[in-house]
Amino acid sequence: MEIVIGVCASVLTVVLVVVLLALLKTLRQATMAIDEAKRTMSELRAEVVQVSQDARSVIQHTDAVTQDIRDKMKELDALFGSVREIGHATYALTSAVRQTATGVAAKVKKAGAAVTPAAPQPPENRKEQATVAAIADGVASAIRIWSKLRQNYTS
């Protein structure tokens, strides 16, 4: 019986050593896994910090661009206001020239109707009438050209 107890004790010792070796190997693998996890976490932390800094930089740049756009829009608002005022002034000027041309044309027609064909006109009156007629034609042509140009640019 002593032999059986000795053999059992020897087998138990061998089994205990094998279990301890397996446990030691598992602990080493667990330690390596934990070290790898620590290394990965520190790398992730560094990358998150870098991404955060990049995001802040992008936001600051976007804010600067947005402010620049706002400033330029304010400048354009002033410019468009000036263009609108110039348009109103041009319209008023065109209306005044149109009325003047209409008045001149009416006077030319009236002067032409007042002249009777039987009575010869002095050369001075003919020159004056020709000059007034030429001016009226020039003004009317200028108004037509201006109207066409304005229509082309507003369309």
Rank of each mutant, 00 (worst) to 15 (best):
G6D: 12
L12P: 06
L12V: 10
T13A: 15
L16Y: 10
V18C: 12
V19C: 10
A22G: 05
L23Q: 15
K25E: 11
R28A: 12
A30G: 07
T31F: 15
T31S: 14
A37K: 13
K38S: 09
T40Q: 13
M41C: 05
E43F: 06
E43T: 13
L44K: 10
L44W: 08
A46D: 04
Q50V: 09
D54H: 03
D54C: 03
R56P: 01
V58Y: 09
V58R: 09
I59W: 03
I59V: 05
Q60N: 14
H61Y: 10
A64S: 15
T66G: 04
K72E: 13
A78G: 14
L79W: 01
V83R: 14
R84W: 03
G87T: 08
H88P: 00
Y91D: 14
L93V: 04
L93K: 10
T102Q: 14
V104K: 04
V108W: 02
V108F: 02
K110G: 11
A113Q: 10
V115C: 04
V115D: 00
T116C: 14
P117F: 15
A118G: 00
P120E: 05
R126V: 04
T131E: 09
V132K: 05
A133H: 03
D137V: 01
I143L: 15
R144W: 07
R144Y: 06
I145W: 03
W146L: 13
N152I: 12
Y153D: 13
T154G: 06
